[in-house]
Design a protein around this nucleic acid. Structure first.
Lengths: 333, 333
DNA sequence: TTGTATGCGTTATCAT
DNA sequence: ATGATAACGCATACAA
């Protein structure tokens, strides 16, 4: 039952069987157009007969292309990322590439050593919500094509789910409901999305003429949301927008623990729409489209791979407010 | 900004700088014990000075070891898998290996071509909840070390989260509560876990002297759970155990849509404990420990990698019933 | 259109 | 303890 290395057929065996040189076999696969059609088929038949498949490692050593893409995420347990990863893997697969996955647990140092470890084998990187310093990222980009997701660095191809619009709509929605004091419950401090959302809340609140108070950053998980409730209550805000749905979900739970009811006592808005209508009460949130982001990122990377000097593109994925059941008129406290 | 291939230093440059042969440089890294201590340090200093790092591709071509593990999952969007993947990646990382991730969308054919694509580059596979045929799996195991998660094939190393105990406890719990007719809502038909749970429900019900009716298989997602509700109601069962938590979660929602309340009208038990106490009402479920399974699988694979002829181990991860709030005394209908 | 020869960066065998 | 040198499997510049 131990794997026998079954002496995989090489280019030489195929060449022998087909009665051509090894170079011809190589060309029959990598550049068939330069060969006569019949030799191509002859070689291919021989190859099929032997179940020959080009050895990617040898190809890599010779060409420098490994057929591998690397994707780095800060927290695979956060429901935002699995769809992102799945879509990226699917896209890569379609292009004949495989996906290396790295999970950093929000640790910039770990991320840095990880990309260093992966760089010699990966043809390119998609850094999702990278926590590395700008300098580290640019250093990597010096070695390998890099595409960023939710990180906005000039000169690098990047896809950004632009929650500014959605968040603004959320704040306006809250203002219209009569809320005059809202809170923003922050997410990871190194998160670009968090910075963007925070800023959007602040600005939109100003514009709407209502007050916005900022609560300190949290790792994004259910428990953190629950534990943030006392601080939230302290602000005397009548509504809160949370960095993301999982935080919001925790807040929901914490609130009922405190005997408060949503949206009667407090309105809550999430972000990313990872919960859909699956919690009770269904969470008002800002859409995200993580899967689209993953696919777009790989597309950008693929593009970059064939033409390294293609102009860097900055693709923005728009968002919108999804009103469900956790927002209502402000309670008169 | 386009990546310059900066002519990475090779073993030759280091050899030149250190005034030794390439072989010595190689040994200084892969087998330092055979060299004099001072030459090792001299070589290492030269390497450090040039920022030399061995080229893994070249190593792979020469040794056959790629430093890559492949993990295949049927559905990365199912919350059971991300922790599994995260733990596996972490374990691999500790061992100096990187993780290739494949998502098959429950498609056996896709899985098969995927492992074929990956086999030449991966040192070994962990197949999580593989949907491939036994034959295909054994074929792969012929080429590469394979560890199975939640699939029970004799002769192959495997880690099984053994939900039999937990499910039995669940059924007994239900019986004690006075339920005399329960339903099992099945999951993916090719899932080993589903088969095991289904069987456990059946047997435990017999032993407890109550009736168990089996509902047909579903893909495991929230909507499928919701849509299964009419069929569930049709059985006139007063309790149901679902293949997993996400299905159970959908059932919960479907039930309230039908104006029914849990656990007053119907008791529900999930599996895997991926929801924790995060839904309302908190779901009674059977624990799983996906992360442990991922770590254990990689450990097994690592073991297999250094000694291909190690006896195949079958590690069982035990489960238990977690009683929360979706089970109660049978309603007298 | 096809073949020859060489290189890609290591490891490993065989000498010394 | 260290050095030469031949693989590893493929791609490609150059020849023919």
């Amino acid at each position: 039952m131990s794997p026998k290395e079954a002496a995989a057929p090489t280019i030489s065996s195929v060449a022998a069987l087909a009665g051509v040189s090894r170079a011809t076999v190589s060309r029959a696969f990598s550049n068939p157009r330069v060969l006569r059609a019949d030799t191509v088929t002859r070689v291919r038949e021989a190859a099929a007969q032997l179940r020959y498949v080009p050895n990617p490692t040898a190809q890599a050593l010779s060409t420098g292309r490994h057929g591998l893409l690397a994707m780095i995420v800060p927290d695979i347990a956060n429901p935002f990322f699995p769809p992102l990863i799945g879509a990226a893997q699917g896209r890569a697969e379609t292009a004949g590439l495989a996906l290396l996955l790295g999970n950093t647990d929000e640790d910039p140092a770990r991320e840095h050593t990880m990309v260093g470890r992966l760089a010699p084998q990966a043809d390119g990187f998609v850094l999702a919500a990278s926590r590395m310093s700008e300098r580290q990222i640019r250093e990597l980009a010096e070695r390998r094509p890099v595409v960023l997701v939710n990180r906005d660095l000039a000169g690098l191809p990047r896809v950004l789910v632009d929650s500014a619009d959605g968040v603004r709509a959320a704040v306006e929605h809250l203002a219209e409901l009569g809320h005059t004091r809202i809170a923003y419950l922050a997410g990871p401090s190194r998160s670009w999305a968090n910075a963007q959302r925070r800023k959007a809340v602040k600005r939109s609140a100003e514009r709407a003429g209502i007050e916005a108070v900022m609560l300190p950053g949290q790792v994004s998980n259910y428990d953190a949301g629950m534990q943030a409730v006392p601080a939230l209550l302290n602000t005397r805000a009548t509504a809160a927008v949370a960095f993301d749905d999982v935080l919001a979900h925790g807040v929901l739970a914490g609130l009922v623990q405190h005997g408060l009811s949503v949206p009667d006592d407090l309105s809550i808005v999430g972000c990313d729409d990872v919960l859909k209508a699956q919690v009770y009460p269904p969470l008002t949130t800002v859409s995200s489209h993580a899967a689209d982001a993953g696919a777009a990122a790989v597309d950008l990377l693929l593009q970059r791979l064939e033409d390294p000097d293609a102009p860097d593109r900055r693709v923005l994925l728009s968002t919108s407010l999804i009103i469900r059941a956790t927002t209502a008129a402000a309670a008169r406290s």
